[in-house]
Amino acid sequence: MHITLRQLQVFRAIATLGQVQLAARQLYLSQPATSMALSELEKHLNGQLFDRTGNRLILNAEGKKLLPLACELLDRSEEISRLFNHSDHHSGKLTIGASTTVGNYLLPEELTRFENANPEITVALDIHNTTTIIEKLASLEIDLACVEGPCQHPGIETIPWREDHLILFCSSEHPLAKRKTVTIESLEQTEWILREPGSGTRMLFELHIGQHLRQRHLKMELNQTEAIKSVVRSGIGISCLSELCIAKELAQGELVPLPFPKKTMKRQLWLLLNKKKYRSGLVNLLLKSLQN
């Protein structure tokens, strides 16, 4: 059996992108050459690695067994190349997944600092809600994840990172803005603009606030923080977001915090790694940078 690194590169690209055409474009290969590499790999392994559905290729059970091993071999081969290029500079590409709040309001500054210190490393940032990012990490589509929601996936290692907390807020013109204290009863009578189910922010809201409301007037569910802020600024309803997201608007007086006399809605931010994925030198370098 003779399996080449090129065949494994093709396999990984197709597994990630789901199409031969997209994999060929990513690897700068022709589509026939990409198809041939996959065919030869499957011939060597004496079985198919994907289920064909239309023009999509979806990993089957055999493909899922191979993917972490293929990723490790490719990552290790890149480590060997870096080890013997006799350069003090790290180079390569990392793909980071981040939940919405972390990805939009915390990571940009962190990644700018990292890339300034390591100009030959390219970082791609993929932003979705916490549930989607965990799924992407589990399927080896990303190297590392930074999220605000809890992760119970058995195949993922969780590393405590930083603390954040949520606050209730409204526009300065909202009827609740002048209250000295906000009760559960008043929260039950107002309209809410909330993040979508599956987001870490929504999970924490439900834990600390939502489960205590006997009734809830849910006006909108939005998957973009900026959209939520715009709606609330217009005077429609109240919301609950990370203070990271609305610090500027609070400072300018466009939004005001609601004095809800419950315990602070703290949450842990997490760094996530796939236990099956080889932790390359580049990943370790980024981890060290984020933890400093």
Rank of each mutant, 00 (worst) to 15 (best):
E62V: 06
T95R: 11
E78A: 04
E78S: 07
L69Q: 15
G63M: 01
I58D: 06
E109F: 10
S81Y: 13
N60Q: 01
L74C: 09
D88L: 13
N60Y: 01
D75T: 06
K93P: 01
D75M: 05
E109Y: 14
L59V: 01
S81R: 14
K65I: 09
L57F: 14
P68Y: 02
T112A: 15
T100I: 15
S81P: 06
E79N: 03
L69M: 13
S77Q: 15
G97V: 02
K65A: 10
C71H: 06
A98D: 01
L74Q: 08
L94N: 02
L94V: 05
L106R: 15
S99Q: 07
E110G: 09
A98N: 03
T112V: 15
E72P: 05
D88N: 15
S77H: 15
L73V: 05
N85W: 09
N104L: 11
D88Q: 13
L83S: 12
E79Q: 08
V102Y: 05
F84C: 06
E72H: 07
N104C: 11
I96E: 06
E72T: 07
T101W: 12
I58W: 03
L94M: 00
P68K: 02
R76W: 02
A70S: 00
H86G: 05
L73C: 10
F84A: 05
K93A: 09
T112K: 15
T95Q: 07
N60A: 00
S87K: 11
I96A: 01
G92R: 02
G97C: 02
N104W: 04
K65F: 09
L107G: 06
N60E: 03
N60S: 00
Y105R: 07
L69R: 15
T95A: 10
F114H: 08
R82P: 07
N85S: 11
L107K: 05
L66Q: 04
T100F: 07
S81Q: 15
A70Y: 01
L73T: 07
T95H: 09
K93M: 10
L73P: 01
H86L: 13
G103D: 06
